[in-house]
Design a protein around this nucleic acid. Structure first.
Lengths: 123, 123
DNA sequence: TTGACATATTCCCATATAAGAATGTATTTG
DNA sequence: CAAATACATTCTTATATGGGAATATGTCAA
C-alpha cells in the first residue's frame, strides 16, 4: 500500500509545504486563484489542484463571484491538529526539566563521587 | 514529482496515522520495539520502518540496552508543528465570533421585522 | 452567438511510499 | 564457535502523488 491519500485528512493535506504556504496566505484575506498563482509562483493548474485538496478536507472555503473564486482558510479545521500536538506539551516541558534535573544530578554525583546510576523505565 | 519524502520533515512523518499512534504510545515511557509491535498489531519490519522515519526527523530517540532498543518520543520535535498550527489560533477565534455576530445580527433583523412574532428572549 | 477570461480537470510520468516476505546484523548465552 | 533473540534493511508490488501540458468548464461582455 502507498501513502494515504492527501484527501484523507488534514494531516496529510498540510504535509505539503506549498499547501501550508497557501493556508498562511489565505488566513488573513480571501483571494482569487490568480493572486495565489502570482504569490506562489506556481502555474495555475498546480494551484487549483492544491486548492482542491485543501477544499476536500475542509481547510479552505470558496466563494464564487462572477468569473472569480475567492478562497479563504478555514482556520477551524486546523484546530484538531493544534490539539493533537498540544497533547505533547506537558512532555516537552517535562523533558526540559528532566534535562535540568539530570544536569543537577550529574553535578551532585560528581561532587559526592557516587559510582553509577542507571536510567529507569516505567515512569 | 511526488510528495516530499517522509524523511524530509516532521509534517510528513506525522501524516501517517500509525506513526501518530507510535508517538502517543512512546510519549509516556520508552519501549522496546517488540512491545510496540504487540501494541500496534503490525509486523516487526513495518514498525521498524516507521521508527526509522520518526528517528530520521528526530521525533523519537533510541537507547540500546543489550539486544533491546528502547524508543521514546522526543516531544520537543513536535513543538514546531504545534507552533505552526497555533499561528491560526486567532483566526479560528475570529471566525467563531463572526459566526456569533452573524447569528446575533440575524436575530436582530428578525426581531425588527417581525416583532410580534417573538414572545420573549431576554437572557 | 462568439470571444475572452478565470478556474478546474485530465493525461502523462517520474518519484515516493507502506506492507509483506526474505534476509542481514548486532548482542547475549551455551 | 554456534544458536537464539531482537531489530534493521532490502526487495517486490500496488498505489498515491505533484508538476507540466493540453483540454474542459463556467461566466461575463459585445
Amino acid at each position: 500500500m502507498a501513502r494515504a491519500a492527501t484527501t484523507s485528512d488534514a494531516f496529510n493535506a498540510v504535509a505539503e509545504p506549498r499547501r501550508r504556504q497557501i493556508l498562511s496566505y489565505l488566513a488573513l484575506n480571501e483571494r482569487p486563484v490568480g493572486e495565489i498563482v502570482a504569490e506562489l509562483g506556481l502555474d495555475q493548474p498546480s494551484v487549483s489542484k492544491h486548492l482542491g485538496v485543501l477544499r476536500d478536507v475542509g481547510l479552505v472555503r470558496v466563494r464564487r463571484q462572477g468569473r472569480h473564486k475567492f478562497y479563504r482558510t478555514n482556520a477551524e479545521a486546523i484546530r484538531p491538529m493544534h490539539a493533537w500536538a498540544g497533547t505533547f506539551e506537558r512532555f516537552w516541558q517535562n523533558q526540559l526539566s528532566q534535562v535540568k534535573q539530570q544536569a543537577e544530578e550529574t553535578a551532585r554525583q560528581a561532587k559526592a563521587k557516587i559510582p553509577e546510576n542507571h536510567p529507569k523505565e516505567e515512569s
